[in-house]
C-alpha cells in the first residue's frame, strides 16, 4: 500500500505540523479502479484490488472520486439495480463516486450522484465551515460511441452549466474533477463560469501532448 499509505502519511504529517488546525480534502479525478475484468488471468486479482481501493477510500475519508470510462466495468457491476443496495452496504464509499455527465443508459443500473458537498472545518477556518462542492465529469477516452458498460456520456460542459448555476449560491468553493484531456480541461474552464478549481487526469497524454 505504498501509494495510498504515503498519501495518508503525508496528510498526517501535515496536520501534525500545523497542530491539526487545517482541513484536508482528499479527492480522486478518475480511473481509480482496474478495468482488467475481461482477462481471465487478471479478473480475480482486479476485483480484489478494486475492493480494497473502495474500502481504503472510505477508511481514509476521501471526499469524492470521479467516474471515468475505465472505472465503469467494475462500478457497473456494483451499480446494477438488484445489487445496488447491498453494494452500498459493502462499500459505503460508492455513495461518493460521482459524475454529472455519466448517466444510466438503461433502467438496469443506478445513477451516480452528480456532486458532493463537503463542509470543511478547522480552527484556521474559524467557526463557520467552508462549503465545497465537488462535481465530476469525464469523456469516453476514445471509446467508440458514447455508451460504456451501460452508462451514457453526456457533454461535460452542458452537464456542468446548470449545476454551477444551482451550486454557486450555496457553496464557498466549487471543485471539478475532470477525467478529460488537456484541451477539454481548458474548454471546461473557459466555457463555464463559477468553477474555482479543475483537477484533471487523463493518463500520460494530459501531460505529454500540447493543447
Amino acid at each position: 500500500m505504498g501509494g495510498l499509505a504515503r498519501r495518508v502519511s503525508y496528510e498526517k504529517a501535515l496536520q501534525e505540523q500545523v497542530g491539526r488546525s487545517i482541513a484536508v480534502l482528499q479527492v480522486d479525478a478518475g480511473n481509480f479502479l482496474s478495468d482488467d475484468l475481461t482477462l481471465p488471468a487478471m479478473a480475480a486479482e482486479a476485483r480484489v484490488k478494486n475492493e480494497w481501493v473502495l474500502k481504503s477510500f472510505d477508511q481514509f475519508k476521501f471526499g469524492a472520486a470521479n467516474v471515468s470510462p475505465r472505472d465503469l466495468p467494475y462500478l457497473s457491476e456494483l451499480m446494477k439495480k438488484p445489487v445496488h443496495s447491498e453494494s452500498l452496504k459493502r462499500f459505503p464509499f460508492l455513495s461518493r463516486v460521482i459524475s454529472a455527465n455519466v448517466v444510466p443508459a438503461s433502467a438496469d443500473v443506478a445513477a451516480f450522484k452528480p456532486y458532493i458537498i463537503e463542509e470543511l472545518r478547522g480552527s484556521r477556518l474559524g467557526t463557520k465551515p467552508l462549503k465545497v462542492a465537488i462535481i465530476g465529469v469525464s469523456d469516453t477516452q476514445g471509446t467508440p460511441g458514447n455508451i460504456v458498460s451501460g452508462y451514457k456520456f453526456l457533454d461535460p460542459i452542458a452537464a456542468l452549466k446548470p449545476l454551477l448555476l444551482e451550486l454557486r449560491p450555496k457553496v464557498d468553493l466549487i471543485v471539478v474533477l475532470a477525467y478529460v484531456d488537456r484541451p477539454t480541461a481548458k474548454l471546461i474552464g473557459t466555457g463555464t463560469t463559477g468553477i474555482d478549481l479543475i483537477v484533471a487526469a487523463y493518463q500520460l497524454p494530459l501531460i505529454q501532448s500540447g493543447g
Binding site: 482541513a23 480511473n31 481509480f32 484490488k49 478494486n50 484556521r124
Partner: peptide, 24 residues
Amino acid sequence: LGADDGFAVSLQYSGDIHGSLETC
C-alpha cells in the same frame, strides 16, 4: 511547504491509480 502563510485548507488528490494502492 515553504513558510506557513496561515493556509486553512489542503486539497490533496490523485488520478489514474487504476486499482493500485502501491507506489507507482
